[in-house]
């Protein structure tokens, strides 16, 4: 009797807050997605799933979807591999390790508006830092953010730079959970570093890795601010991503219903990606 009520007690604060402040607005936007409405004009028209049907023919949206997936493929695996490597390095007991940790974390604390401006200088085709070094090395300068071929890659690099510290911190926290004794006893038994990593660290870290994979995929699929500041979706639509598209539809063209439909298609993509990740990784996630 007492047992049945315990989960309710433990879940009540979170669930009630989520229902009011998160689920309610989400349902509201679903309601919006079935209408042709800008949220301010007196007449709203119920259109059913027409907004969704229109999306299939919307070239701007298809392009945004493609770019979002490419951005996710560029950033998520790179970030996870880099962060895991860094976290293992930063988990050592070394002099000055906390300074290194602070440096790797520093990009995370910067305000995105200011740091995007800094990156725009770094990427500047004639005066920027990267091309400055390229010229010294005799490499042809690249129009990083200006060229449709490199713009999305450039935004991805900046995003990896900014998000890396977060992932490192989560991995670090995950590494703390692994009992030192297990690694030590394996070492005594003559296991190589790679074996220790493969059979102990990687396995015991799998709940953390799963978490990071899911969360960073969601974040990548929802990338917006740095695009808004640095490229506004350009050049020639090369960095147009879904949330930017949604923002443009909703807030500049006042197509709130349509924008909400975009959000729900994104939702479907993210959920199926998450389920796929869960299915594929179920084998090595040890709880």
């Amino acid at each position: 009797m007492k047992r049945a009520i315990t989960p309710i007690l433990f879940l009540f604060p979170a669930v009630s807050l989520v229902m009011i402040f998160i689920v309610y607005p989400i349902f509201y936007s679903f309601y919006l997605s079935l209408h042709s409405w800008d949220m301010i004009s007196p007449n709203r028209i119920f259109v059913g799933f027409k907004n969704y049907a229109k999306l299939i023919r919307d070239r701007m949206f298809i392009n945004a979807l493609k770019n979002t997936l490419i951005f996710t493929i560029y950033t998520v695996p790179t970030q996870i591999i880099l962060a895991l490597g860094l976290a293992i390095l930063l988990n050592q007991k070394l002099k000055g390790i906390s300074i290194y940790r602070a440096i790797f974390f520093s990009p995370v604390v910067t305000s995105i508006v200011a740091i995007s401006a800094v990156w725009m200088w770094i990427y500047h085709p004639s005066l920027g830092l990267i091309n400055y070094f390229f010229r010294i090395l005799g490499i042809n300068p690249v129009n990083w953010l200006g060229d449709p071929k490199t713009a999305l890659l450039s935004v991805s690099i900046m995003s990896i730079w900014r998000g890396l510290g977060r992932t490192v911190v989560i991995f670090l926290a995950g590494l703390q959970e692994i009992p030192k004794e297990m690694q030590e006893s394996a070492q005594i038994e003559g296991a190589s570093n790679w074996q220790i990593f493969k059979y102990i660290t990687w396995k015991l870290l799998s709940p953390t890795t799963f978490f990071i994979l899911v969360v960073s995929t969601i974040n990548a699929m929802q990338v917006f601010t740095q695009i808004h500041v640095m490229t506004q979706g350009g050049p020639a639509g090369a960095t147009e991503v879904i949330v930017y598209n949604l923002y443009y539809r909703g807030f500049q063209l006042f197509q709130m219903g349509y924008a909400s439909a975009i959000a729900y298609v994104l939702f479907a993509f993210i959920i199926s990606l998450t389920l796929m990740q869960k299915y594929m990784l179920n084998r090595w996630v040890f709880y």
């Binding site: 725009m120 500047h124 085709p125 004639s126 005066l127 129009n143 953010l145 200006g146 060229d147 449709p148 490229t231 050049p235």
Partner: peptide
């Protein structure tokens, strides 16, 4: 005119390019 440099031209102009 160099192609696709609208976001960087203002700073280039200041530097005499």
């Amino acid at each position: 005119m160099p192609p696709l440099q609208h976001n960087s031209s203002a700073r280039d102009f200041v530097n005499g390019l």
